[in-house]
């Protein structure tokens, strides 16, 4: 595929062989390639990453952008939008980045509603620092720093984003097609889009049947404009254990963006 090559930097990839980040990379590139095929230019895009395994994606996508600091992806995205309101900005974070170090930015960015697409690679573990628990790690998880196992219930980011009034809230599995589709939907949405990708870490946090438990909200006819329904669906999976895990777009409603309110387009 021509567009695919076009978006590659050619840098040797250092993710573990078989890492699900490859699926995320492919899904994201496919979605961007389609946007470009439909008339957008490469220069219309910018990518921003945090720090962690996910952040290496910056090195593998040939687009302008900033590989920023751990937890600081969203304010950097916002600053870029202030400079170039029409820029299509995609932020990448891990679960440590988004839910631990950068939590305050996540909540406020949902409130500010800049037209930024935010992808969280949630593998429920700090992988690049060799396996410590994050705010979304399940009870009982053990590693060298937590020999007695995790004792705190994980955070539910979907509920948090709904409560913070995010205009686009989605969760998908680390599957190329799912990612491509949800990102394409997010591009159509005017405003902040929160996309969480449930991504097994093949070294520190294996799948354990998560994929099989996931079902599509859209196939079930979920009404994505209904906030209360979205909240109910969000409660089906508490990130600790679940019978079934909803996947797809929980909620979508457009409202005035940060750019609409504060930036006059030049």
């Amino acid at each position: 595929m021509k567009a695919e090559t076009n978006l590659s930097t050619g840098i040797p990839n250092t993710w573990c062989p078989g890492c699900f980040n490859f699926s995320i990379l492919a899904g994201v590139k496919n979605a961007i390639a389609k946007e470009i095929a439909e008339g957008k230019k490469k220069e219309d895009f910018a990518i921003v990453s945090g720090i962690g395994c996910h952040a290496k994606i910056f090195d593998y996508i040939h687009l302008n952008g900033i590989n920023s600091l751990h937890g600081r992806v969203l304010p950097v995205c916002l600053g870029m939008k202030v400079a170039k309101p029409n820029l299509s900005v995609i932020g990448f974070s891990g679960d440590g980045d988004a839910y631990a170090e950068g939590m305050e930015h996540l909540i406020h960015m949902a409130r500010f509603n800049p037209d930024v697409k935010y992808i969280v690679h949630n593998n429920q573990v700090f992988a690049l620092t060799v396996g410590q628990p994050t705010p979304t790690t399940e009870l009982g998880y053990k590693d060298k720093t937590t020999p007695d196992g995790v004792k705190l219930m994980p955070l539910n980011p979907i509920k948090l984003m709904l409560a913070a009034n995010a205009g686009f809230v989605a969760r998908v599995y680390a599957d190329v097609k799912q990612i491509e589709e949800v990102l394409r939907e997010a591009f159509k949405h005017k405003g902040f889009a929160f996309i969480e990708i449930i991504q097994p870490c093949i070294i520190f946090h294996k799948d354990e049947g998560v994929k099989e438990k996931m079902y599509s909200l859209q196939e079930q006819g979920h009404d994505r404009s209904n906030w209360q329904e979205a909240m109910k669906k969000a409660e089906e999976f508490d990130y600790n254990n679940a019978e079934k895990i909803p996947s797809g777009i929980f909620y979508q409603k457009e409202r005035a963006t940060f750019e609409d309110i504060f930036l006059r387009y030049r």
């Binding site: 600081r72 304010p75 950097v76 916002l78 600053g79 870029m80 202030v82 400079a83 305050e104 930015h105």
Partner: peptide
């Protein structure tokens, strides 16, 4: 712009600055 804290303030400024 008044943002949520000084960390956000300087990171946003860096984002804007990088883009000219």
């Amino acid at each position: 712009f008044e943002l949520e804290n000084e960390i956000s303030v300087i990171c946003a400024a860096i984002g804007s600055s990088a883009w000219g």
